[in-house]
Every structure is written in C-alpha cells, then in structure tokens.
Design a protein around this nucleic acid. Structure first.
Length: 492
RNA sequence: GGCGGCAUAGCCAAGUGGUAAGGCAACGGUCUGCAAAACCGUUAUACACCGGUUCGAAUCCGGUUGCCGCCUCCA
C-alpha cells in the first residue's frame, strides 16, 4: 500500500513497525464549540483509512484525542460564565453526537488531555534533563529549546531562518528564542492549575499529543495525522519534543488531509465562514455528506456548497437504485450459491465489460492501495453500476444470470462497507432521499389524499383534473411518479 | 516577504510517459394518457499559457499568469 508521507513529500510503501499491527494517532478536536464540516472530513477520512487498513488484514489501534484544557475553552467559559470543564464536557458530547450521526464508530482509545497530566509532566522532565526544556523565570512558563533539536522545520519544510523571518512579534520576552514554544503554562490566579515541579500550571497545546500517543502506541507511531493546517506549528512541535525526549523517530508516516473551503477560501472559525455538522445534517442525510467528502482525493482542498451536496445526493441515488432492484429480484428469484460460471457471457455485455465486472474488487482495492484514492474507487463502483443496470434491463431467471447478480450484489455491499456506504436498506434510503421528510411543507396524509383523488380522475381518463392535481402538488415542490405499482411522490 | 500546493469538459473530479475514469447538468432515445422516475446513448483532438526533454507528455524540466494554504489558534 502506498501512502503519502508529509515528511518526505512522497508516496511511500506502507509497512508497520510490528508486522500486522498498526498504531494510528489522529489529532482530534479542541472542545470549545460545535464542530464544522472540516472536522467531519477529518473523521471520515481517518475512518476510511482505518477501515481499509483492516481490510488489508492489519490490526489497527486508532487513537483520537480530545483537547479538554486550552485557552479557547477558558475563553468560552468566561464568556458564558460557566465552569471550563463543563464547557469541555458539553462539546465533547456534541462531537460524539456528530460522530454517531455520521455513522462513524468511536476510535479504540479517545484520551483526554486532563487525564494525562502526569504523563506530560514526565515528558517535560525528560526534556529538561536532556537540556531541551527550560524555565526562564521561577514559576513562569516552561519552553522547548527549538535550536537544540536539529530536525526542527523538516516536517513543514521550513528552515529556522525562514521561520524566524516570519515570526510574529514575541509577547513573552522571557523566551531565549522567538521560535521556542510552550511546554507548560504557568496559570494565572483565576485559572485551572495542576501542581508541577515548575509551579502550578497547565499543559501547552503540543505536549498532550506527544504524551498520549506515546503512552498508548509506543515511542514510534506508524501513522500520525490530521488536517494540513496542523503541520505547523502543532505537528512540527510534537515531533521536536517527542524525538528530543526519546531519541527515536516519533512517527513513520505523517498523513495530512486537505481543508474544506467555502468559495475556495478555508473554512474556519476565525473567518466565520463555517457550517457546523449539525447544520449540514439538518439538510442532508449523513450518507450524502460522506459521499461528498470521499468523492475527491483526501489531500485536495474540497469546496463546500449546497449544490455540491445536492450532486452527491443524486449520485447516492444512482448507487442505491440498482441495489434496490437487485434485492427485489433476488427476493423472488434467489441466486444459487457461489460465483457465476466463469464462461457466462450475458448478451447485454461485451467480453470487455464482463471482465470489468469480474475485476471490480481488485481494481477497487488497487485504488485504495494507491494513497487511499477514494475518488477512483468510487469511479469503478459507478462503472459497475452502469453495467449492472444493463443486466437488470433484461431480467432472466437463468441460474448463471442470478448467480452473477447475487455476486454483484454481495460485492456492492462489501465494497460499500469499506467506505461505510450502501449499508442501509436500499428501498428505505431511496424513499428518504426522494421525499426529504425533514423539509416537507404539506403532510404526507394530505399528499396521499390528493393522489387518491387524482387516481379516480385518471381512471375516468379525466386528464384535466388529474393534471390539475399534479400541478397543485408541484407548486408545493412535490413531484408525482406514476409507476406500475401505483403513484408515488417525491420532493423537488 | 519566506516556504509549499493547485490549474483537466457547463460544474465537480480521477488520471506522474503511450493518444483523456467517474458523478452532476444538458441533449437524443426507450417507457408513459401526458409527464416524472428509471434505464440506454451522446457530449474535452484535449488537460491555464510559453518554451524544452522524448519516438511519444495532461503526466518530466524551465519560465509566465492565476488561485489557494502555511509562516498565529485552527481538522
């Protein structure tokens, strides 16, 4: 499997340190507000990566942390006049709700910063012992001595000189060097504090990830990741302090996903141009959001808009439609067990097209094997959808035909599982996607009543009345579809 | 100012040396009382621009333009 490594700026062949076992640490959230679509992208990407690694047979330990003590949380608490730990707990709960709504299972370990203060203090002690940490004045902040660590800047591709030239005006003159960063922050009187050898204080932002990842995954991680915006300073600093303390490589693969944009500009709290996960899920089903997120490569920027979500919704309908048809057919005509005969050549497909169906799984895996190329994997899936539709146009009860459909059906579910897609009941999903019950302006009962009246009119070939009723509903955004099984309705 | 990334059809988006996946939209057809849905089919001699390397480049190299990210908390 190839994986792009930010550290080397290349795709590299991925092998874990211990055969068969992968330790993955993904930076989680700072719990001070509801999460936005960018956080959803992060979670969905790492979930898919983990799912694929497991498909490849690796036993993955996935760790995702919560930053539950931080300036932003304290500010928020002050604003609300609420206890800071209550604020953190509330937004952790909010994040958990979002994950559940998106269908993302919890990571194996979800450590909280405040529950790992001793580990952080121990790490700082080791750094001080080796001369990497210093306290400029008694009771003050403890800093990391950046220039003592030779690899600084390598992850973000910046030289110390470049960084220094761009460094902002330094507030704390106690630092030996403007690039030095905080390991331990001395608390002000009204702030939460933990006892430490350097006086009461709280951890700096970066130290928690080093301490917690090493505690749960060892001193060298197989994969460490997060959003591109974490490369500097967060991951650069984590790397520096971890390697300075252990003398070992901190992470073998650094994996960073691209950011969500709005009108091509980064979605972020500070710019205020964000949509929360809750806002988006109020308008679109979770699976639509997931499809939107993985329909382009994880390292590219991804522009968010309602139009893009609507496209993903249409695409999801295209995926579920043949699934529903297959299930209906297979319910009345069960497929014989086993794969279809290798020489089966249905009239509606060419040899080449049959070959594409036979190699679907292999090509799908190849795509994910190449730096988690979900866009390409989905492309293969859609290609198979078209061929399956063609098969379904001319149904047959011949065993080889049913075996082929049964096999395809099983493959769609299996491959969908890797992406956490297509696992819902197809007919129910299609109804939900079409009827959008959450934005209905008229009750379903009223709609059914109008449909019944129209049915009577149609029976008498009173097309004028029938069309008038159809128009009346159309004005309310409801479209009618006359099918052999009767009339059904949908939104828009 | 420094560092890095991106530029593929109306829109979104794969594709790192051999003559352009896929999705949306549009158009044509099948179906239908008419529709809708669904399905099928069609839609980039061409990959920002200019040079170069090569038998051959969207893909490699140099330059130009434009957009974005990081350099400060941020997924």
């Amino acid at each position: 499997m190839l994986l792009y490594n930010t550290l080397t700026r290349r795709k590299e062949s991925f092998e874990p340190l211990s055969p068969g076992k992968v330790g993955l640490y993904a930076c989680g959230i700072t719990a001070y507000d509801d999460c936005h679509v960018g956080h959803a992208r992060s979670s969905v990407f790492f979930e898919v990566l983990v799912r694929y690694l497991r498909r490849r047979g690796f036993a993955v330990t996935w760790v995702r942390n919560y930053t539950d003590i931080d300036d932003k949380i304290l500010n928020r608490a002050k604003q609300e006049n609420a206890p800071w730990d209550e604020v953190a707990a509330r937004y952790i709960a909010s994040f958990e709700e979002d994950m559940a709504a998106l269908g993302i299972p919890p990571a194996q370990i979800e450590p909280k910063a405040t529950e790992h203060i001793p580990e952080m203090l121990e790490l700082i002690r080791r750094l001080e012992e080796k001369g990497f940490a210093y306290q400029a004045r008694p009771g003050g902040d403890v800093y990391f001595r950046v220039r003592r660590y030779s690899g600084y800047g390598r992850l973000s591709g910046q030289s110390l000189e470049d960084l220094e030239a761009g460094a902002r005006v330094e507030v704390d003159e106690a630092k030996e060097d403007p690039l030095d960063f905080v390991l331990w922050k001395a608390s002000k009187p009204d702030e939460p504090a933990w006892d430490s050898p350097w006086g009461p204080g709280r951890p700096g932002w970066h130290i928690e990830c080093s301490a917690m990842s090493m505690k749960y995954l060892g001193e060298t991680l197989d994969i460490h990741g997060g959003g591109r915006d974490l490369i500097f300073p967060h991951h650069e600093n984590e790397r520096a302090q971890s390697e300075a303390a252990t003398g070992k490589p901190f992470a073998r693969f650094w994996v960073h996903h691209g950011l969500i944009t709005i009108d091509r500009e980064k979605m972020s709290k500070s710019l205020g141009n964000f949509f929360t996960i809750k806002e988006v899920l109020a308008k679109f089903p979770a699976e639509v959001v997931r499809l939107f997120l993985i329909n382009s490569h994880y390292r590219s920027p991804l522009d968010f808009s309602d139009a893009a979500l609507a496209e993903a919704e249409a695409a999801l309908i295209r995926l579920y439609t043949p699934l529903a048809k297959m299930e209906e057919l297979l319910r009345t005509h069960p497929a014989p067990g086993g794969p279809p005969p290798p020489d089966f050549a249905p009239a509606m497909l060419t040899t080449l097209e049959m070959e594409r169906l036979r190699t679907l799984t292999a090509r799908f895996d190849d795509a994910l094997d190449d730096d988690v190329n979900t866009a390409q994997a989905l492309g293969y899936l859609f290609d198979a959808v078209r061929l399956t539709n063609r098969l379904l146009e001319s149904p047959s009860s011949e065993p080889p035909y049913l075996a082929l459909l049964g096999h395809l059906h099983q493959q769609f579910l299996e491959l969908g599982h890797v992406l956490n897609l297509l696992q819902a009941d197809p007919q129910e999903m299609l109804t939900t996607l079409r009827q959008k019950p959450w934005e209905l302006a008229i009750s379903p009962e009223e709609i059914e009543e109008l449909i019944a009246r129209r049915a009577v009119a149609r029976k008498h070939k009173d097309w004028a009345t029938a069309d008038a009723i159809r128009q009346e509903l159309a004005n309310k955004g409801i479209l009618l579809e006359d099918t052999p099984q009767g009339t059904v309705w949908r939104m828009k």
